[in-house]
Amino acid sequence: MKKKINGRTLLLFWLVLSVLFLTAVCIGGSFLDETARVTDFSRKNISPCIQYPFGTDWLGRDMFARTIRGLSISILIGVCAASVSAVAAFLLGVVSATMGKMADGIVTWLIDLVMGIPHMLLLILICVASGRGLKGVILGVALTHWTSLTRLIRGEVLQLKEQNYVKIAYKLGKGRWYVAMKHMAPQLFPQFVVGLVLLFPHAILHESGITFLGFGLSNEQPAIGIILSEAMKYLVTGKWWLALFPGIMLVLTVICFYTMGDSLRKLIDPASAHQ
């Protein structure tokens, strides 16, 4: 057989690369906290060079450090918000699919309620109402992102309940717990993990979104949203690097999460298992 890198190995490669990139950003961010805040007017407005790969801003702050620090904050928020959402989604999904019509009705109504309001608007509302800052953003993102995953899990459980092998298991005298653990969990787990990973990019984008609009993190935080909104003022004066590099890094982070989710899905999903 030809020695060729097969699809699965390639997927794993992308997966590992994404994970490495994201952990590097996180770890780097925690070390660069101090550097990101240092202002030094002797080096202000330097365009990208070897010493300052992303340049410096009008206060002489190192943009590379700020960007990485900002991203690590974003990822942190993403992890918190996505985890809270995922747990909520899982519980609500299972409740709605197993506890009868009434419970299902309430959960579906809640989903429709949250989904009926524009995402951004609801996020801003929750964020402002809970006092902005890190807490506000996490709360806001968590409370708005559980819907799609809940729907997915609920649909999946409903479908599983109709499967022949589930009905047969009940006839063989198996209880609800057995069916849930042996028949449903193995099918739900991959869906859940992939859904969880794919929540991150959403959460990150929304976090930078509201911060950009001025409703999120406070101004002294080196958050991506803040960086971008401040850079807006200086763009017209030709300081392109202030927006370009942080922007690219944000996109890269989001793409990394998507690649992670996608490769995971393909690796776990039997339908595409032999690609």
């Binding site: 092998y165 042996k182 028949h183 193995p186």
Partner: peptide, 20 residues
């Protein structure tokens, strides 16, 4: 509990969990 009347279905592939 265990039902004294059991049924065998036409399509075995629908009667077993593909992940077990």
């Amino acid at each position: 509990g265990y039902c004294p009347v059991q049924m065998i279905w036409q399509h075995p592939e629908q009667s077993v969990n593909p992940r077990r």
